[in-house]
């Protein structure tokens, strides 16, 4: 399988990338690791006429301690997030989620920014950063803005990013010793989650997010409310699927997904990690 023809340009900086994409209009797309985009192009489900390769913008690949949060460059690869000592110390939930993305070949190429920009509800990092209360920094022809993860995901593969906006940084609040759990339910080792859960908890405060329980990554708000009201893990987890509308497909029916969400949220709140 070979993609449809396109023009390829390489950007040396974020500003240059934005200028190139704006110049080519809606037909242009950023290319980061290419591990979502290239498979789609091979299937001809995506046919951009121009690819602006941002994969070599080295100064967008970093993890920095920024006081109350970690600042992670959008071009940081999954493998570098997974193995970063700073991420392991201050956001262990994110390090664990990154280690579950695809397989090691995929993690050598795919980037955290590409994963978030792609906004796939079945992806691990959108939901995990949502649970952690992250925000995303985007730069475009109209300037730079910060978007809360909770305002970012609009629909299936649809986000608040404009086509000419480049995600440059992911800001992840430090977990400061919160308890956490990560659950990814798969049938085969390297698969995408049939349902997944990223959760942390500190006293009555919590962040619980669901993978593949609807068209976007979702916060399990009923569960978080119940924890705030003092419910235990078991009781709060019973409400994990409230208000969700998961799909039925070859892997699972909607009812089974709702069941999985309740079980996996309980396990995650008990601090268990797959």
């Amino acid at each position: 399988m070979i993609p449809a023809p396109f023009e390829y340009v390489r950007a040396g900086s974020a500003d240059e990338a934005v200028a190139l994409v704006s110049q080519h209009g809606d037909e242009a797309k950023f290319l980061a690791g290419g591990h979502s985009l290239v498979p789609l192009m091979k299937l001809r489900l995506a046919q951009p006429s121009v690819l602006v390769d941002v994969g070599r913008i080295r100064d967008l690949s970093y993890v920095r301690d920024a006081g109350d949060h970690l600042a992670i460059g959008a071009l940081t690869r999954h493998m570098d997030v997974e193995t970063s000592p700073l991420v392991r110390e201050h956001a262990p939930l994110l390090a664990r989620a990154a280690s579950h993305v695809g397989d090691s070949q995929v993690r050598h190429r795919g980037t955290i920014g590409g994963s978030i920009a792609h906004a796939d509800p079945a992806s691990d990092l959108p939901a995990t950063t949502l649970a952690l209360g992250a925000s995303y920094v985007a730069t475009g022809p109209r300037g730079t803005r910060t978007i809360a993860a909770s305002d970012f995901y609009r629909g299936f593969l649809d986000s608040a990013l404009e086509p000419d906006e480049l995600l440059v940084e992911v800001r992840v609040p430090k977990m400061a010793g919160a308890e956490w759990g990560f659950q990814k339910f798969v049938r085969r080792a390297q698969d995408w989650a049939i349902v997944g859960v990223a959760a942390w908890r500190r006293g009555r405060d919590s962040g619980v997010a669901l993978v593949n329980m609807g068209p976007t990554p979702l916060l399990a708000r009923s569960t978080m409310d119940a924890l705030r009201d003092g419910a235990g893990a078991d009781e709060a987890a019973q409400r994990a699927a409230d208000g969700t509308d998961p799909s039925s497909d070859v892997n699972a029916s909607a009812e089974y997904r709702a069941h999985l969400a309740r079980v996996l949220v309980r396990r995650a709140l008990e601090g268990r990690a797959t």
Partner: peptide, 18 residues
């Protein structure tokens, strides 16, 4: 699978220009 700058990658998912 081949090595790109020393790391294992899937060469069916990488453009030669990359």
């Amino acid at each position: 699978t081949v090595h790109l700058d020393g790391e294992a990658v899937k060469s069916c998912t990488i453009l030669a220009v990359q």
